[in-house]
Amino acid sequence: MPVRRGHVAPQNTFLDTIIRKFEGQSRKFIIANARVENCAVIYCNDGFCELCGYSRAEVMQRPCTCDFLHGPRTQRRAAAQIAQALLGAEERKVEIAFYRKDGSCFLCLVDVVPVKNEDGAVIMFILNFEVVMEKDMVGSPAHDTNHRGPPTSWLAPGRAKTFRLKLPALLALTARESSVRSGGAGGAGAPGAVVVDVDLTPAAPSSESLALDEVTAMDNHVAGLGPAEERRALVGPGSPPRSAPGQLPSPRAHSLNPDASGSSCSLARTRSRESCASVRRASSADDIEAMRAGVLPPPPRHASTGAMHPLRSGLLNSTSDSDLVRYRTISKIPQITLNFVDLKGDPFLASPTSDREIIAPKIKERTHNVTEKVTQVLSLGADVLPEYKLQAPRIHRWTILHYSPFKAVWDWLILLLVIYTAVFTPYSAAFLLKETEEGPPATECGYACQPLAVVDLIVDIMFIVDILINFRTTYVNANEEVVSHPGRIAVHYFKGWFLIDMVAAIPFDLLI
């Protein structure tokens, strides 16, 4: 008679799926529990143990900040960024110097990925580790590398530091407007667009060049630039800015003055950032001319202004700041037409079709709590990747769950009947059967004279019903998954307890 339990259901295979997918890609990662103190490590794979030199037993239950890997060259700011990422709910990448158990130093890129439950609360953290440099290539500990984003994938490793954006290309926007319009339909740009040429040739750093990471940081200074100062900065030398009595002219307006920039070969870094931020506020060169004239017309309804409409929906549905990093990277690809469009465009503009998908598509409701890094690593669709929660398995109709209350009560009843059979069957065979043979035949009273025979008949009927119930009862397979398919249940029961239950259900007393 089957006594099969499996009270692990309803099970959740999400954690096993993450481990299996990460292991298949030869990654070095740990999984931490966000619900406990210090976000203790609950799993670390073999790749991480080989990377740091510690065994799994030495890593388990330690804080996922990996303070046991810190050393003299470990930056405090990087460690603080990892700790801050564990307090938030967004994906974050941090470069930090770690030390192995043998004392060797290596520069590592740590990717902190939160995993949320159905309520939107962070319950786990996945920390992925990628070695960037070994100890002989690690720089000085005073050099802070965590304020910069990861290198873009479309640049060669040897040319990542030679990417320079020439400031004269930004200063000569109005001069290039006529050349853009003359391109017409034969050019790649839309009317009114501004073409910015980027020099990728390796050259020595000069005062006129600005690194790509500095251009990325310009967006942080746009908020500090007032509207009046932006307007004066875009007017140009024809209309000098008016300053109040006793007030000095704005240095932001002076930063885009061609006369002032041409007199000296070098520009201050602050002026460069502010000038680029001011130019980015204009949607095209037409807006710059309109600002000089004193009238700013409404933005025209053409394809170039609607190019950012799908980007707005993608940004609203993005799951991490990696989408913004990807957008900034692609927006700086050289030799393309940049349409400086305000994100607050007309909502009635139709979304044009684009061959290049900048932001990841909208994630469906079932995966809105899973970050983009987890979705990318697992390579699963929205119909396959579940949320991290207890999910009731989908069972067929008329199927009994093996952990249901009805099955528990039924098993206790069958257990009592088995005990009765084990006690009274030998007793009936030894004593009652002998008395029946010696006594007179009682054929007239039937079952009324033999109450134990009636009980034995009921017990046999219950055993037959138990066999039928076992054909529709779920079970737990070797992978700790609840199986509810009727065919698989029948095959599993035939290979197991079916023969024993059938022999126990045969009414031998009635056959004798």
Rank of each mutant, 00 (worst) to 15 (best):
P2I: 02
R4S: 14
R4M: 15
G6P: 06
H7E: 14
A9K: 14
A9C: 09
F14N: 05
D16Y: 10
T17A: 12
I19P: 01
K21P: 04
K21R: 07
E23G: 06
G24D: 13
R27P: 03
K28M: 13
N33L: 06
A34D: 01
R35F: 15
R35M: 11
E37D: 08
A40Q: 10
A40K: 08
D46T: 06
E50P: 01
L51Q: 01
C52I: 15
Y54F: 14
A57F: 08
E58Q: 12
M60G: 01
Q61G: 14
C66Q: 01
P72L: 01
Q75F: 01
R76Y: 11
R76H: 15
R77Q: 15
A78H: 13
A80I: 14
A83R: 09
A83T: 14
A85C: 04
G88T: 14
G88V: 12
E90I: 08
K93T: 12
I96V: 11
K101A: 05
D102F: 01
G103P: 01
F106A: 01
F106G: 01
F106N: 01
C108W: 01
C108F: 01
D111V: 07
P114C: 01
E118H: 11
V122P: 12
F125R: 06
F125C: 06
I126T: 09
E130Y: 05
D136I: 11
M137R: 13
S140W: 14
S153E: 07
L155P: 07
A156K: 13
A156G: 15
P157G: 09
R164A: 14
K166F: 05
L167Y: 08
P168G: 14
L170Y: 08
L171W: 13
T174E: 14
A175M: 04
E177C: 05
R181V: 09
G186V: 09
A193F: 05
T201Q: 09
A204N: 15
P205V: 06
S206L: 09
S209H: 15
A211D: 15
E214L: 07
E214A: 05
V215Y: 12
V215T: 09
M218F: 06
M218W: 11
M218V: 07
G226P: 07
G226L: 10
A228L: 14
E230R: 08
G236P: 07
P241E: 08
P249K: 07
P249S: 04
A253D: 06
H254K: 13
L256S: 14
S264H: 04
A268N: 14
R273Q: 08
S283R: 05
D286L: 09
D287G: 08
R292I: 12
P298E: 09
P300L: 07
H302Y: 07
A303F: 14
T305L: 13
T305F: 11
S313N: 10
G314S: 09
L316E: 13
N317T: 08
S318F: 09
T329M: 03
I330E: 08
P334H: 04
P334N: 08
N339W: 01
G345Y: 06
P347Y: 08
S354W: 15
I359D: 07
K362S: 08
K362W: 08
I363P: 13
K364P: 04
H368V: 10
H368K: 10
H368W: 07
H368N: 11
N369S: 14
V374M: 07
V377F: 06
L380Q: 04
